[in-house]
Amino acid sequence: MAVKELAEYLVKSLAEHPEKVELQEREEDDTVLLELTIAPEDIGRIIGKSGYTINAIRTVLQAAASSRRKRARLEVLGQGEAALPEENGEADNEADS
């Protein structure tokens, strides 16, 4: 599915360890849910300052999904302590849509 391919391209282009990028895809109704696993040292880079990078990725993924009348969600797995900025990003995204 194109949304997953796009996520893969974006994350791999930004990651220091593209070989460790894994994406799981699930589809629920009209929503494409993507779960991302990356090298721990890449997590900060992919999330970015106050979630700036991950939110930009989500926005572009949403555009790709919208062009097919779908919705897209991207979650970063296994962040432990670093979970906070991403959750904030989620809230922002939801408030926007």
Binding site: T53, N55, A56, T59, V60, A63
Partner: peptide, 25 residues
């Protein structure tokens, strides 16, 4: 208008990611 988004949000996200990827490369 899909590529623009609310107040240019999508356009800005594209711009941000392209510049980040090109800078890295």
């Amino acid at each position: 208008g899909l590529l623009i988004g609310k107040r240019g949000k999508t356009l800005n996200a594209l711009q941000f990611l392209v510049s980040k990827i090109v800078s890295r490369q």
